[in-house]
Design a protein around this nucleic acid. Structure first.
Length: 343
DNA sequence: AATCCGGGGTT
DNA sequence: AACCCAGGATT
């Protein structure tokens, strides 16, 4: 057996979780139910749901023949309700095609609705003791740290590498214990924040521990590159210090808020400024970036001082000259308010 | 490869 | 508020 599995199993014998509800009695139905409930759901949340579920529907055949409303009621509050429908559909398939039992064959298992590669492996390992790897959030965290694997575990190439390591490290002996052990380690010691490396049996071989990367691994989900847009904001200021504000349209960001007139570039900014006021010169102020959830806005403020309002550009519902003390009562985008305050 | 599903806990 | 959690199905 490889040293990793050996050390992990020795730790498990001493510190592993051995009293989870689905561990006694341990049968394929209960393991399956627990695995599905535990998809993206934490253990402490699952336990009461699991106990209620197996008390009401103790066997796979009970589940297969139950009313769908009953199953959904038992699931109510857990979330991901599609899991409950898949669960019952899979149970019915097992009754129809597999003699009322979960198949011991990986392909047949993974074909059932709601059972993917990891859940199939978990069932085969936990319920039947067969040598199949799992790769859940715990295993991903443990392996990325132990092996120093960078890149977000959700990305295909990273996940592929993780599956290869998970496969290689899973021992042929005590596979059920090993599977439980690596999840226990991830859940109790190799936790996301402040892992307890001092108590970890594999700390001496851990790349993340060695290189002080436990806070870096597993790599965070890449914040998808948000596009950056450019805009020129026109600050037309008259001799009294009033600034021309424009009400934004009903669509898009800052809809309905009072903001500065904008233009695509300095040329357009000049033309726009001249259409609204008599102006002399322009002063480019330091640009800044405002971050939205879906894009970044690079703002280039252009200050036109000593502007004189053109007679035909009078205050109206969408355009107004606004003194500094009037701005407080208006809805202004935060960066615009800041920009004007710092003039 | 990206998105959706979902409530709850953590930071 | 953002991120993560015993992931899988869908597009």
């Amino acid at each position: 057996m490889n040293p990793f599995a050996s050390a992990l199993l020795a730790w498990f014998d001493e510190h592993g979780r051995k009293d989870l509800p689905w561990q006694h009695p341990r049968d394929a139905y209960r393991v399956w139910l627990s695995e599905v409930m535990l998809q993206q759901t934490q253990v402490v949340t699952v336990i009461p749901y699991f106990l209620r579920f197996v008390a009401t529907l103790p066997t796979l055949r009970d589940l297969a023949s139950a009313e769908e409303d009953t199953v959904l009621a038992l699931w109510s509050g857990l979330g991901y309700y599609r899991r409950a429908r898949f669960l019952q559909r899979a149970a019915q398939i097992c009754v129809d095609k597999h003699d009322g039992e979960l198949p011991r064959d990986f392909a047949a298992l993974a074909e059932l609705p709601g059972i993917g590669r990891s859940t199939a492996g978990a069932i085969l390992a936990q319920a039947y003791g067969l040598r199949f790897p799992i790769l859940d959030g715990n295993v991903k965290r443990v392996l990325t740290r132990h092996l120093g694997i960078h890149g977000h575990p959700g990305q295909s190439p990273v996940e592929k590498v993780l599956w290869q390591h998970a496969e290689a490290l899973t021992p042929a002996q005590r596979t059920a214990d090993y599977t439980q052990a690596i999840m226990d380690l991830g859940a109790t010691l190799c936790v996301r924040a402040k892992p307890r490396c001092d108590a970890c049996p594999m700390a001496s071989d851990c790349v993340a521990k060695r290189d002080d990367l436990t806070t870096q691994l597993p790599s965070a989900k890449p914040t998808k590159a948000v596009p950056t847009r450019d805009t020129v904001m026109l600050i037309l200021r008259d001799a009294e210090g009033r600034v021309l504000l424009e009400r934004r349209g009903p669509q898009g960001v800052w809809s309905g808020l009072w903001s500065l007139p904008e233009a695509g570039d300095h040329d357009q900014a000049w033309r726009a400024a001249q259409s609204m006021a008599t102006i002399d010169d322009a002063q480019a102020l330091p640009s800044f970036v405002h971050v939205f959830s879906h894009y970044r806005l690079k703002v280039e403020p252009l200050l036109f001082d000593e502007a004189t309002a053109r007679p035909r550009i009078a205050d109206n519902s969408n355009l107004r000259w606004c003194a500094p003390d009037e701005r407080a009562a208006l809805g202004l985008p935060a960066p615009v308010r800041t920009l004007l305050q710092n003039l």
